[in-house]
Simulated assay, not measured.
Amino acid sequence: MNFSYEEAYLDIEEPCSAQVNPKVQHVLQVYVYSIICILGFIGNTLVIITYAFYKRTKSMTDVYLLNVAIADILFVVALPLIIFSEQNGWALGTWSCKLLRGIYSINLYSGILLLACISLDRYMAIVQARRSFRLRSRTLIYSYLICAVVWFMGFILSLPTFVYYQRYKHNGLGVDISFYSSSDVTDNTTEEHEQLQTPSALLPGFEEEQYVCFFLFKDNTTAQHMKVLVPSSQMALGFFLPLLIMGFCYSQVVFTLLHAKNFQRHKAVRVVLTVVLVFIACHLPYNMALLYDTITMFSLKECSDDTTTRLVLALTESLAYLHCCLNPLLYAFVGVNFRNHFRKIVEDAWCLGKRYIGARRSSRATSDGYLSSRRSVEGAPSENATSFTM
């Protein structure tokens, strides 16, 4: 009697595919993420240029804003590199997987924690103005130390990414590749395992194996613990703690401004409320979806529910990424002085462009005159006196 693998597995129900819809993923990566990266790169580059050439870091807020811009620009540079590597099977190997994902994680944590530091500084400057004036004016070095601590915390919180992220071959089962133990995936260095664990060749409908970059653990116990620890730390320290700090500080700031006798107080209150509301609107949906996924990860769910959860996570994550484009507008360009510096950058860039065009034309005219003189005076030495100048 002949035995067929296909007939044996016809009655087996395939596992749920936890992958995001390819069309949705394509739209997010090609269009949405591209817009976010371009706008985020331009806005944060202008902030860095302003601090480098036009405005000195004279206060703690300036130091925090500069570091936020650095974190955001590193984030928008790492994101397209990650997408490119995903589409090409992480061809550069495990080191690129760890490095890119690690940089991505560090800047994600650091950027949000620095926003909390800005709210604390605004609280000290407005609510505790008398007590903190000398401290904030004479100890600018403290802001650099605080930023160093924030970056170090971002690195510590990203250690699981550096340690456990690996480039490995997806086993083709169509299930969620997140937090596999090493017994569940095929190692790209072991040919025997690759031959044994190839269900896509046996079962119809299974996806072909592909290289991925994600968490990989040696045992299931570690996988289960980290599967809860990583998203929990991301939600607690990457959203809820900064939200509590910002909520307390900015509520006190608004209360103080409303009791101040200043004709610009209402504008300042609107700015503060805009900062808080935009932060909540960008990050709350993703963290709520992540919280739901973390709570229900060990319970049985319908395939449709799991697919919906993955789709919601992908969409809300792109909304959270959008915040890096809005940071320059909310924290930097909303100030009059910063807008003046930005206008100066545009004017200087325009003048530089006109000088460059004029110099090219002048250089071309001089070159033509030089050639004609060479034709008229054969063998006579000549020197191009007009050089390219700015």
Results as ranks from 00 to 15, higher is better:
292 Y>D: 06
106 I>T: 09
199 P>V: 11
91 A>Q: 15
185 V>I: 14
99 L>E: 05
24 V>C: 11
132 S>M: 11
332 A>S: 13
149 V>P: 06
344 K>S: 15
178 S>Q: 11
223 A>L: 05
102 G>K: 01
158 S>R: 01
351 C>S: 13
156 I>G: 11
241 L>I: 12
21 N>R: 05
285 P>F: 03
138 R>Q: 12
42 I>Y: 06
71 A>W: 02
376 S>D: 02
22 P>I: 06
99 L>G: 10
63 V>S: 03
207 E>T: 15
61 T>M: 07
272 V>C: 03
175 V>T: 14
381 P>R: 04
44 N>Y: 04
271 V>W: 04
225 H>I: 14
277 L>Q: 03
11 D>I: 09
72 D>S: 15
340 N>C: 07
273 L>H: 04
175 V>R: 09
63 V>Q: 00
153 M>H: 13
266 H>Y: 06
50 T>G: 11
89 G>I: 07
365 A>M: 11
289 A>K: 01
355 R>V: 11
328 P>E: 00
227 K>F: 12
189 T>Q: 12
218 K>W: 15
223 A>T: 03
304 S>I: 04
243 L>T: 10
8 A>D: 09
342 F>H: 10
203 L>V: 15
214 F>N: 15
29 Q>T: 09
6 E>L: 09
55 K>N: 04
288 M>K: 04
336 V>I: 14
192 E>V: 14
196 L>K: 14
371 L>D: 08
292 Y>V: 07
266 H>L: 05
24 V>R: 03
57 T>L: 12
12 I>H: 08
142 Y>P: 01
102 G>E: 01
364 R>L: 13
47 V>H: 02
7 E>R: 10
287 N>H: 07
96 S>R: 11
381 P>E: 03
37 C>V: 06
94 T>M: 09
48 I>A: 08
145 L>E: 05
285 P>Q: 02
138 R>L: 11
241 L>E: 00
20 V>W: 02
178 S>G: 11
308 T>R: 05
15 P>Q: 06
371 L>Q: 10
82 I>H: 09
175 V>S: 11
289 A>Q: 02
59 S>K: 03
320 A>M: 03
239 F>A: 01
282 C>G: 01
204 P>K: 15
306 D>R: 08
356 Y>C: 11
35 I>P: 03
354 K>D: 13
59 S>H: 08
69 A>M: 09
183 S>A: 13
